[in-house]
Simulated assay, not measured.
Amino acid sequence: MDNSITSLGLMSGTSLDGIDASIINSDGKSHLEVKANDFYQYKSEFRQKLRDYIKNINSLEDIENSISEYKNLEKEITLLHSDISKKIISKQTIEVDLVGFHGQTIIHKPKKKYSIQMGNPNLLSQLIQKKVIFNFRKNDMENNGEGAPLTPVYHSLLSKKIFPNEPSIFLNIGGVSNFTYCNNEELVARDIGPGNVLLDEYLKKTKNIDFDKNGEIASTGQINMDIINQFIEHDIYSSKDRHSYDRNEFDFNFIKGLIFEDAVATLNYFTALIISNYFNENFINCTNIILCGGGRKNKTLIQNLKNLLKKNICDIDKFNYDGDFIESQAFAYLAIRSYFKKNISFPSTTKVSKPISGGETFKNY
């Protein structure tokens, strides 16, 4: 197809589980072919090292004061991105033209006008001998945007293919939950609140396990509605003006004192209630919700959402798109749009002052 190029998207999300990689062919508009998806799982030691570092970063000054550790982690994470890039590219018979490199978010403070994604695009470009598009959030934040979410323009493309004549909501449940509402050319997106982060952090701290597989632990506990009713009105969960969240903003300490299974069940329901309250208040007439992100595999969480929302909630995998790789595909698509100077963020998605492009190109070979 004319003006179509092949792009590799790389995404390491707030769940800190590893690196998603996707290769697509697109013109940055309506044409899309997904060529390949792959995943590199972080070794537990590296994941813990990354988790511990992020937990201690609450400002730019904290990064400056730990710059040696930051640089070591940055090199290590870039090398891991290089490894999976080489692996997935080697299996293709077509040339990969661009790489969309998101990096690992270390701290995201839109109100203070900064967002730090760890990664070295010059080193990655040198190692894989490709043009690398990086710093996707920078131009947005320099134009009064919050720098996130950036995936809505890709969700819009998918929406037109899945529900071409109906409005739909993409619900991405990663560490943080966010949504995109698509209705013809109308595009609205926001972070909603916690996705997996409260559950994952609690499980890691109390039992040293990474997540509740399929929601099995939550399914065995009793939900404590007294605690939920007490904390659901907290500003961070009930504010009408949702902002782009940093994972460190969320704290699970309100369930202290509950037995383990009840705590997990309560956090699970609490997460579902935050999401459903937002949709019931703001999108009562939109019946189609498309699930993506790792949280869609938590059966208890999804059942709670179905009970609370009474909408047509379906997994994106049902439409032959792998829900584990929507964000990495999105950054491949954003790289193409950035390369062609097309807009990637909008006032209705990131609160940026005007529709703008983003992403900087690095070539080091």
Rank of each mutant, 00 (worst) to 15 (best):
F279N: 00
I209A: 06
L291D: 06
L273Y: 09
I209V: 15
I255N: 00
T180Q: 01
C286R: 02
A272S: 09
S238D: 10
I173F: 12
V176P: 06
D210W: 11
Q222A: 08
E233S: 14
N277W: 01
F231N: 14
V264A: 01
F270R: 01
R190I: 06
I227L: 15
N224W: 05
N183G: 04
L187R: 10
C286A: 05
F170K: 12
Y237D: 07
L198R: 04
S276C: 06
N183T: 07
N224S: 06
G175H: 06
L273Q: 03
R247T: 12
Q230S: 15
S239F: 00
L187K: 12
L198G: 03
V188K: 09
F270A: 05
N183Y: 12
I236M: 04
L291E: 10
I289C: 03
F231C: 09
P194V: 06
P194A: 13
K204H: 13
I255R: 00
N172D: 15
Q230H: 13
D235Q: 07
S244V: 05
N282S: 07
A265Q: 07
A218S: 13
C292D: 12
F211N: 14
I290C: 10
F211A: 08
K205Q: 09
I173K: 14
L198H: 04
E261S: 03
